[in-house]
Simulated scan of single mutants.
Amino acid sequence: MSLGPTDEFVIDDSQRMTVNGTINKTGIMLMIVVAVGAWAWNYSLTNLASAQTILYTGLFGGLISGLVVAFKPNIAHIGTPIYAVFKGLFLGTISAFFEMRYPGIVMQAVGLTLAVMFAMLFSYRTGLIKVTETFKKVVIFATMGIALFYLVSLVAYFVFGAEVSYFNTENASMFSIGLSFVIVGIAALNLVLDFDFIEQGAANNMPKQMEWYGAFGLLVTILWLYIELLRLLAKLRE
């Protein structure tokens, strides 16, 4: 039966995407990352010889599961927890490595990540940053460029054994430090896109399962921002 001009399509509240529901799911995913990361951290400190295996398992497991969720939003309720586990393995291990070389750097990176996240949320809610179509295009294209840079760097390292100077924090150039600032800035702006997606999804009565997709996007950005801040702080210490 077709709907007339005065008919309404009503979605039950229990089947509707909400901002609070998305935030709750994001919080649960972050707790999984922290819990798995704590285990990987402790394991790395006592098993340095095999810690690299945990690192690469988390790196490639997170990459694959993240790509699957990104292109298959309907399975985000399954893929997002899996992604959180793999990222916990990766971040816990690499954080331990950074902490051993630069004591206190992890808590600094965590604090800065939270500060940037709340600053972006404040900017979005108060209208200091407006999400226009042009804004979206610029941030998305910049993010795609960074993702391509990461991909080429991974291929160069694992296939040809060539290390890209950007990822070397021990002998960081001013250009490398400047590039880190730019990437941190792009990651921060992606938070605004995530906030907007969640708010618009709730306003447009998207189905409940999209809360998982919104949580996935926000989780990816938060963890990306953390690792880039960790790398930036290491370069500045050197």
Rank of each mutant, 00 (worst) to 15 (best):
T46R: 08
V36Y: 03
W39M: 11
I23C: 07
V33Y: 07
N24T: 11
T22P: 08
Q15P: 01
G37S: 08
D7A: 09
R16V: 05
T18P: 11
T26W: 14
T26H: 10
I28C: 04
N20K: 14
T26K: 04
K25V: 00
G37V: 03
W39N: 01
N24G: 15
V34L: 11
A38V: 13
Y43K: 07
A40L: 09
D12H: 15
N20Q: 10
I28F: 14
F9S: 10
A35C: 08
I32G: 04
W39V: 09
D13E: 15
V36Q: 03
D7Y: 05
G27W: 01
D12G: 13
S14N: 12
W41T: 03
K25R: 13
N42R: 07
V10Y: 10
V33P: 00
F9N: 14
A40C: 12
D7N: 01
K25Y: 13
I28R: 04
G27D: 03
I11E: 14
A38G: 11
N47C: 07
T46Y: 10
I32Y: 04
N47V: 06
S14P: 01
V36E: 00
V36D: 00
M31I: 14
A40T: 06
S44F: 05
V10F: 14
V33K: 00
V10L: 14
T46W: 05
M29K: 06
Y43A: 04
N42V: 11
M29L: 15
L45C: 01
G27Q: 05
L30T: 01
T18F: 09
Y43T: 10
G21E: 05
M17R: 07
M31C: 09
M29V: 07
T18N: 05
M31T: 12
L45W: 02
D13T: 13
K25A: 04
W39I: 13
D13V: 07
T26A: 09
V10S: 08
N24F: 13
W41S: 00
G27S: 08
D7H: 08
G37R: 01
M29T: 05
I23P: 02
N47G: 07
